[in-house]
Computed example of a mutant assay.
Amino acid sequence: MRISTLFLAGALLTGSATTARAQAYTDPGSYNNAIVAEQLIMQKKCLRYISKSAHSENERKIEARRQDVVAQNKASLAKISHLPGFQGNTEFRDRAKAAFQQMLSVYSADYQKVNSLAVGRSKSLEAMQRYFDALEAAEQKLKVAGDSVEVAQQRFAARFKMTVTEDRETRKMNEVIRQVSEVNAYQHRIFLAYFRLERANAQLTDGLNAQDAKAFEAARLALETETDKTLAELDAIPAFRGKDTQYRDAVRDYAKFYVIWSGNQFKKMTELLEQKDHLTKVDADAFNGYIAAYNKQNHKLLEAYNNAGNTFQATYIPVFND
Results as ranks from 00 to 15, higher is better:
72 Q>H: 13
69 V>M: 02
88 G>W: 02
107 Y>K: 01
84 P>W: 11
138 A>C: 02
130 R>H: 12
103 M>E: 13
109 A>T: 04
165 T>E: 14
58 N>G: 12
109 A>L: 08
105 S>K: 15
155 R>S: 14
168 R>A: 15
171 R>A: 15
118 A>V: 00
158 A>V: 09
108 S>D: 10
126 E>A: 08
124 S>M: 05
164 V>T: 09
157 A>I: 05
148 S>K: 08
129 Q>E: 15
124 S>T: 13
114 V>G: 03
91 E>P: 00
123 K>F: 06
133 D>M: 11
62 I>K: 06
96 A>L: 05
110 D>E: 03
181 S>Q: 14
165 T>Q: 11
69 V>S: 08
157 A>Q: 04
69 V>N: 07
86 F>L: 02
167 D>I: 08
109 A>N: 10
81 S>Y: 00
80 I>Q: 02
148 S>E: 15
168 R>V: 11
161 K>N: 14
89 N>F: 14
112 Q>C: 02
128 M>W: 07
186 Y>P: 02
119 V>F: 09
112 Q>N: 08
73 N>I: 05
164 V>M: 06
107 Y>W: 15
114 V>T: 08
109 A>P: 00
86 F>Q: 07
88 G>N: 01
177 I>N: 12
155 R>Q: 09
107 Y>M: 11
171 R>Q: 12
120 G>D: 10
107 Y>D: 01
89 N>G: 03
184 N>H: 12
61 K>M: 15
175 E>F: 08
135 L>V: 04
82 H>T: 00
187 Q>W: 06
175 E>R: 14
135 L>D: 04
91 E>Q: 10
79 K>I: 09
77 L>S: 10
106 V>D: 05
140 Q>A: 13
178 R>T: 11
98 A>R: 06
96 A>K: 01
180 V>I: 09
70 V>F: 14
93 R>S: 09
101 Q>C: 08
179 Q>V: 02
74 K>Y: 05
176 V>R: 02
120 G>M: 05
109 A>W: 00
161 K>G: 14
181 S>R: 13
96 A>F: 07
66 R>P: 13
79 K>S: 09
164 V>I: 10
139 E>N: 13
156 F>Q: 01
90 T>Q: 11
183 V>A: 01
125 L>M: 10
190 I>Y: 07
127 A>M: 12
182 E>Y: 12
163 T>A: 12
63 E>F: 07
162 M>T: 07
68 D>S: 11
165 T>L: 05
84 P>C: 03
181 S>E: 13
77 L>K: 15
